[in-house]
Protein backbone atom coordinates (compact mmCIF):
# COMPACT_ATOMS: atom_id res chain seq x y z
CA UNK A 1 0.00 0.00 0.00
CA UNK A 2 1.43 3.38 -1.01
CA UNK A 3 0.44 6.89 -0.12
CA UNK A 4 0.29 9.87 -2.46
CA UNK A 5 -0.88 13.46 -2.18
CA UNK A 6 -2.96 15.88 -4.17
CA UNK A 7 -2.89 19.47 -3.06
CA UNK A 8 -5.84 21.88 -3.19
CA UNK A 9 -5.06 25.53 -2.72
CA UNK A 10 -6.61 28.93 -3.16
CA UNK A 11 -7.89 31.79 -1.04
CA UNK A 12 -10.27 31.24 1.86
CA UNK A 13 -13.80 30.57 0.70
CA UNK A 14 -12.81 29.42 -2.78
CA UNK A 15 -14.31 25.98 -2.16
CA UNK A 16 -11.26 23.83 -1.32
CA UNK A 17 -12.96 21.99 1.49
CA UNK A 18 -16.13 21.44 -0.59
CA UNK A 19 -14.10 20.22 -3.56
CA UNK A 20 -12.17 17.77 -1.39
CA UNK A 21 -15.45 16.58 0.06
CA UNK A 22 -16.77 15.96 -3.46
CA UNK A 23 -13.89 13.58 -4.22
CA UNK A 24 -13.08 12.10 -0.85
CA UNK A 25 -14.13 8.62 0.21
CA UNK A 26 -14.34 9.84 3.80
CA UNK A 27 -16.02 12.94 5.16
CA UNK A 28 -13.62 15.86 5.07
CA UNK A 29 -11.69 16.27 8.25
CA UNK A 30 -10.39 19.61 9.31
CA UNK A 31 -7.21 18.76 11.09
CA UNK A 32 -5.28 21.04 13.30
CA UNK A 33 -1.54 21.16 12.97
CA UNK A 34 0.69 22.83 15.47
CA UNK A 35 3.18 24.99 13.68
CA UNK A 36 5.73 27.55 14.39
CA UNK A 37 5.03 30.91 12.85
CA UNK A 38 7.45 33.76 12.64
CA UNK A 39 5.78 37.00 13.49
CA UNK A 40 7.53 39.23 11.00
CA UNK A 41 6.94 42.50 12.84
CA UNK A 42 8.22 41.29 16.19
CA UNK A 43 10.73 38.76 14.94
CA UNK A 44 9.97 36.00 17.36
CA UNK A 45 8.49 32.58 16.90
CA UNK A 46 5.22 31.51 18.37
CA UNK A 47 3.29 28.30 18.19
CA UNK A 48 0.00 28.53 16.34
CA UNK A 49 -2.69 26.12 15.20
CA UNK A 50 -3.26 25.77 11.48
CA UNK A 51 -6.38 24.16 10.01
CA UNK A 52 -5.87 21.77 7.09
CA UNK A 53 -8.69 20.18 5.16
CA UNK A 54 -8.09 16.52 4.62
CA UNK A 55 -9.80 13.83 2.58
CA UNK A 56 -8.73 10.58 1.00
CA UNK A 57 -9.36 8.60 -2.18
CA UNK A 58 -8.99 4.87 -1.62
CA UNK A 59 -7.94 3.03 -4.74
CA UNK A 60 -8.88 -0.63 -5.27
CA UNK A 61 -5.30 -1.86 -4.77
CA UNK A 62 -5.29 -0.17 -1.35
CA UNK A 63 -3.19 2.76 -2.51
CA UNK A 64 -4.39 5.99 -0.97
CA UNK A 65 -4.44 9.47 -2.42
CA UNK A 66 -4.48 11.98 0.39
CA UNK A 67 -6.25 15.21 -0.48
CA UNK A 68 -4.93 18.22 1.37
CA UNK A 69 -6.46 21.67 1.34
CA UNK A 70 -3.96 24.31 2.29
CA UNK A 71 -4.85 26.92 4.86
CA UNK A 72 -5.89 29.90 2.78
CA UNK A 73 -4.27 32.62 4.78
CA UNK A 74 -1.08 33.83 3.21
CA UNK A 75 0.63 33.98 6.58
CA UNK A 76 0.67 30.21 6.70
CA UNK A 77 2.59 29.85 3.47
CA UNK A 78 5.45 28.15 5.33
CA UNK A 79 3.07 25.21 5.77
CA UNK A 80 2.64 24.93 2.04
CA UNK A 81 6.19 23.85 1.43
CA UNK A 82 5.75 20.96 3.83
CA UNK A 83 2.44 19.97 2.31
CA UNK A 84 3.50 19.89 -1.32
CA UNK A 85 6.45 17.57 -0.81
CA UNK A 86 5.81 14.47 -2.91
CA UNK A 87 2.51 15.85 -4.22
CA UNK A 88 1.20 14.60 -7.58
CA UNK A 89 -0.17 17.96 -8.70
CA UNK A 90 -2.02 21.09 -7.71
CA UNK A 91 -5.67 22.06 -7.93
CA UNK A 92 -5.95 25.82 -7.60
CA UNK A 93 -9.40 27.21 -6.83
CA UNK A 94 -10.04 30.92 -7.25
CA UNK A 95 -13.17 32.62 -5.97
CA UNK A 96 -14.38 34.92 -8.75
CA UNK A 97 -16.57 36.85 -6.34
CA UNK A 98 -13.59 38.09 -4.32
CA UNK A 99 -12.37 41.61 -4.81
CA UNK A 100 -9.35 40.89 -7.02
CA UNK A 101 -9.45 37.31 -8.24
CA UNK A 102 -6.71 37.77 -10.83
CA UNK A 103 -4.39 39.03 -8.11
CA UNK A 104 -5.27 35.92 -6.10
CA UNK A 105 -4.42 33.85 -9.16
CA UNK A 106 -1.03 35.53 -9.56
CA UNK A 107 -0.31 35.21 -5.86
CA UNK A 108 -0.99 31.49 -5.67
CA UNK A 109 0.74 30.65 -8.94
CA UNK A 110 3.85 32.46 -7.76
CA UNK A 111 3.66 30.91 -4.31
CA UNK A 112 3.55 27.41 -5.81
CA UNK A 113 5.70 28.15 -8.85
CA UNK A 114 8.35 25.53 -8.15
CA UNK A 115 5.78 22.84 -7.43
CA UNK A 116 3.79 23.74 -10.57
CA UNK A 117 6.93 23.57 -12.74
CA UNK A 118 7.83 20.16 -11.37
CA UNK A 119 4.26 18.81 -11.58
CA UNK A 120 1.18 20.51 -13.09
CA UNK A 121 -1.73 22.70 -12.08
CA UNK A 122 -5.42 22.85 -12.98
CA UNK A 123 -7.38 25.99 -12.15
CA UNK A 124 -11.03 25.98 -11.10
CA UNK A 125 -12.84 29.30 -10.99
CA UNK A 126 -15.69 29.23 -8.49
CA UNK A 127 -18.73 31.45 -7.94
CA UNK A 128 -18.82 32.67 -11.54
CA UNK A 129 -22.60 32.51 -11.28
CA UNK A 130 -22.43 35.33 -8.73
CA UNK A 131 -19.67 37.24 -10.43
CA UNK A 132 -19.12 36.49 -14.13
CA UNK A 133 -16.13 38.82 -14.38
CA UNK A 134 -13.25 38.51 -14.84
CA UNK A 135 -13.97 36.05 -17.62
CA UNK A 136 -12.07 32.83 -18.19
CA UNK A 137 -10.34 34.57 -21.12
CA UNK A 138 -8.81 36.99 -18.64
CA UNK A 139 -7.60 34.10 -16.52
CA UNK A 140 -5.97 32.55 -19.58
CA UNK A 141 -4.28 35.84 -20.48
CA UNK A 142 -2.97 36.27 -16.93
CA UNK A 143 -1.64 32.73 -16.86
CA UNK A 144 0.02 33.10 -20.26
CA UNK A 145 1.89 36.12 -18.90
CA UNK A 146 3.08 33.85 -16.11
CA UNK A 147 4.27 31.35 -18.72
CA UNK A 148 1.51 28.81 -18.09
CA UNK A 149 -1.36 27.39 -20.14
CA UNK A 150 -3.15 25.03 -17.76
CA UNK A 151 -6.78 23.87 -17.83
CA UNK A 152 -9.04 26.61 -16.46
CA UNK A 153 -12.63 25.60 -15.87
CA UNK A 154 -15.65 27.22 -14.36
CA UNK A 155 -16.33 25.08 -11.31
CA UNK A 156 -19.11 24.67 -8.83
CA UNK A 157 -17.19 23.03 -6.00
CA UNK A 158 -20.41 21.43 -4.75
CA UNK A 159 -20.75 19.50 -8.01
CA UNK A 160 -18.71 16.33 -8.00
CA UNK A 161 -18.80 16.25 -11.81
CA UNK A 162 -17.09 19.64 -12.03
CA UNK A 163 -14.39 18.79 -9.51
CA UNK A 164 -13.82 15.34 -11.02
CA UNK A 165 -13.44 16.84 -14.50
CA UNK A 166 -10.90 19.35 -13.20
CA UNK A 167 -8.95 16.51 -11.63
CA UNK A 168 -9.17 14.49 -14.86
CA UNK A 169 -7.77 17.46 -16.76
CA UNK A 170 -4.92 17.67 -14.26
CA UNK A 171 -4.16 13.98 -14.74
CA UNK A 172 -4.13 14.31 -18.53
CA UNK A 173 -1.83 17.32 -18.35
CA UNK A 174 0.52 15.07 -16.39
CA UNK A 175 0.27 12.40 -19.09
CA UNK A 176 -1.89 13.02 -22.19
CA UNK A 177 -1.57 9.37 -23.24
CA UNK A 178 -2.94 8.06 -19.97
CA UNK A 179 -5.75 6.20 -21.73
CA UNK A 180 -3.25 3.95 -23.44
CA UNK A 181 -2.19 0.66 -21.97
CA UNK A 182 0.41 1.11 -19.25
CA UNK A 183 3.72 -0.44 -20.14
CA UNK A 184 4.78 -0.27 -16.56
CA UNK A 185 3.08 0.71 -13.41
CA UNK A 186 5.94 2.61 -11.93
CA UNK A 187 3.81 3.45 -8.97
Amino acid sequence: MSHYKLIFTGPSGAGKSTAIDALSDIPVVTTEAKASDRDRSKEFKKTITVALDYGVIRLPNKDKIHLYGTPGQERFDFMWELLIEGGLGLILLIDNAREKPLEDLRFFVKAFEGFIRSTKVAVGVTRMDLSPTPSLDEYHKTLRLLGLNPPVFEVDARQKADVALLLQALLYTLDPCLHQEAETAAA
Binding site: L88, L171, L178, A182, T184
Partner: peptide, 19 residues
Protein backbone atom coordinates in the same frame (compact mmCIF):
# COMPACT_ATOMS: atom_id res chain seq x y z
CA UNK B 1 6.19 15.14 -27.08
CA UNK B 2 4.95 14.90 -23.49
CA UNK B 3 6.58 11.95 -21.77
CA UNK B 4 4.83 9.06 -20.08
CA UNK B 5 4.48 9.93 -16.41
CA UNK B 6 6.65 7.91 -14.07
CA UNK B 7 3.58 7.06 -11.98
CA UNK B 8 1.38 6.21 -14.93
CA UNK B 9 -0.07 3.13 -13.25
CA UNK B 10 -1.17 5.15 -10.25
CA UNK B 11 -2.60 7.96 -12.38
CA UNK B 12 -4.58 5.41 -14.40
CA UNK B 13 -6.01 3.89 -11.25
CA UNK B 14 -6.94 7.31 -9.93
CA UNK B 15 -8.56 8.20 -13.25
CA UNK B 16 -10.47 4.93 -13.18
CA UNK B 17 -11.67 5.72 -9.68
CA UNK B 18 -13.00 9.17 -10.51
CA UNK B 19 -14.57 8.23 -13.84
Amino acid sequence: LPQHHAKRGLLKRLLAHIT
